[in-house]
C-alpha cells in the first residue's frame, strides 16, 4: 500500500473510532442505573464488563469463575431480562448494574453500552469484556490469578491479551443433557474441536480472523465465510480512547489487535470457553430468530437458527474432552508465551 493510502486509511479508522465513541456516549442515555457500586473500585482493580439478557442459569458459575480469577468489580448491563437475572445480580456485593430495554442490535449488539461504561470506569484498569457464556482460561489460571497475569503483561509492555473462542458441546443432541440452573456448564459441556481452525489476517485492522470449530463444520459447511469469528481480545488495559470495533473481535487503535507474533514466536494467549450450547439453546434460538437482534442481516442466519432449534448432535469421534489448560496449551489452542 502506498504511503498516501496508508495515511488515508489511518485517518479513516481514527474518524471511525471517534464517531463510535461519540455514539457510545450518546447511548449511555439508554442506560438506567440500578445499583452503582463503582465507588468501591480501587486503582489496580481488575474490572469485568458484560451485557446480558436472561442468563440467570449461568450467572452463579459465571461470577464464581471470574471471582476466582481475581476480578474485583463487575459492571453489567441487563438488556431487559425477564428471568430474574437483574435481581440476582443486584444482590451481589461487587456488581454494579445498569438496565435498558433498548434494542440490542441498534446498540451494536450491546457493545455501545459496554463501551460507554468502559470509557467512564475502565480507564487505567485491566478490563475483561465478555458475554455471560464466555469463561476465560489461560495458562496457569488455576495457580496465578489475573493480577499476576496483568502485572506480568504490563511489565513486558503489553496492553492486551488475546484468546480463541472455543465452542464447547455435549455428547449427544444438544437437548439431551440435563443442566440444572446454577450448575457449572463445564460439567455438562465437555467436548470441543481441537484442530480445525482457519486463520486469515485482516490487512486493514491487522487483526487475525479465526473461524472453524463445530459451528463451522455443522452449520456453515456450505458457506464457510459466514462461520462465526472466533478471535477475541477479552482483556485490555483500558484507555478511554480505545474502542471495541466489532464485538470483542477487534479494537481500535489497530495495535491492540496484535495479539500474535509474526516472527515465529508465540505470544501468551488464552481461550474463552464458550458455553453457548446448553440445553436451553433450542428455546433461546427460537426466541432470537424471532427478535432478530443478533446479526447485521437478520434473515441470512435463519438456517443457522433452524439448525440450532433442531438440537443437533455436534459430537464426533474426533471430538476432544476438556481436561484443563495444560491440554489446551499442548494442543496449541493457547500459549504461555514466555510466561514460564
Amino acid at each position: 500500500m502506498s504511503g498516501v493510502a496508508r495515511i488515508w486509511q489511518a485517518y479513516q479508522l481514527r474518524r471511525k473510532r471517534q464517531l463510535r465513541l461519540g455514539r457510545a456516549l450518546r447511548k449511555r442515555r439508554e442506560l438506567q442505573v440500578l445499583v452503582n457500586r463503582t465507588d468501591a473500585i480501587r486503582p489496580r482493580d481488575i474490572l469485568l464488563f458484560a451485557t446480558l439478557r436472561n442468563e440467570r442459569a449461568r450467572l452463579p458459575s459465571f461470577l464464581a469463575h471470574y471471582r476466582r480469577l481475581g476480578v474485583s468489580q463487575f459492571l453489567i448491563v441487563d438488556n431487559g431480562s425477564t428471568d430474574g437475572s437483574a435481581d440476582y445480580l443486584g444482590a451481589q456485593p461487587e456488581v454494579s448494574l445498569w438496565h435498558t430495554t433498548a434494542s440490542y442490535r441498534d446498540s451494536r449488539f450491546g457493545m455501545d453500552w459496554v463501551q460507554g461504561l468502559l470509557m467512564r470506569y475502565g480507564h487505567g484498569h485491566w478490563c475483561v469484556t465478555v458475554d455471560a457464556d464466555e469463561l476465560l482460561v489461560y495458562p496457569h489460571h488455576d495457580t496465578r490469578a489475573l493480577p499476576a497475569l496483568t502485572e506480568w503483561l504490563e511489565a513486558g509492555g503489553e496492553e492486551m491479551f488475546g484468546a480463541l473462542m472455543l465452542d464447547l458441546y455435549p455428547r449427544g443432541p444438544l437437548d439431551s443433557v440435563r443442566f440444572a440452573p446454577g450448575q457449572d456448564p463445564l460439567e455438562v459441556l465437555t467436548w470441543y474441536d481441537a484442530g480445525n481452525y482457519t486463520i486469515a489476517r485482516k490487512p486493514g485492522l491487522e487483526a487475525l480472523w479465526i473461524q472453524g470449530g463445530p459451528r463451522a463444520r455443522a452449520f456453515f459447511a456450505d458457506q464457510p465465510a459466514r462461520a462465526p469469528t472466533l478471535t477475541k481480545v477479552p482483556l485490555v488495559k483500558w484507555h478511554w480512547r480505545y474502542l471495541y470495533l466489532n464485538s470483542t473481535h477487534a479494537l481500535l487503535p489497530r495495535h491492540l489487535n496484535r495479539i500474535y507474533d509474526t516472527e515465529g514466536g508465540e505470544k501468551p494467549s488464552g481461550v474463552l470457553l464458550h458455553t453457548k450450547f446448553l440445553p436451553q439453546i433450542a428455546a433461546k434460538s427460537a426466541e432470537e430468530k424471532q427478535r432478530r437482534q443478533h446479526f447485521g442481516e437478520p434473515g441470512a442466519f435463519d438456517a443457522y437458527y433452524d439448525a440450532l432449534i433442531a438440537a443437533p448432535d455436534l459430537w464426533t469421534p474426533a471430538s476432544t474432552p476438556y481436561r484443563g489448560w495444560q491440554q489446551l496449551e499442548a494442543e496449541g489452542l493457547m500459549s504461555r508465551g514466555g510466561w514460564g
Binding site: G162, A163, I199, L208, T231, G264
Partner: peptide, 21 residues
C-alpha cells in the same frame, strides 16, 4: 522451554497468538 516457546514457537503451529509471516 518457555523462552524458546516465546521466541521460536512450536513448528507447524498456527494459532491466535502465533501467525508467522
Amino acid at each position: 522451554r518457555a523462552t524458546s516457546q516465546r521466541i521460536r514457537g512450536r513448528a507447524g503451529l498456527y494459532m491466535a497468538s502465533r501467525f508467522p509471516v
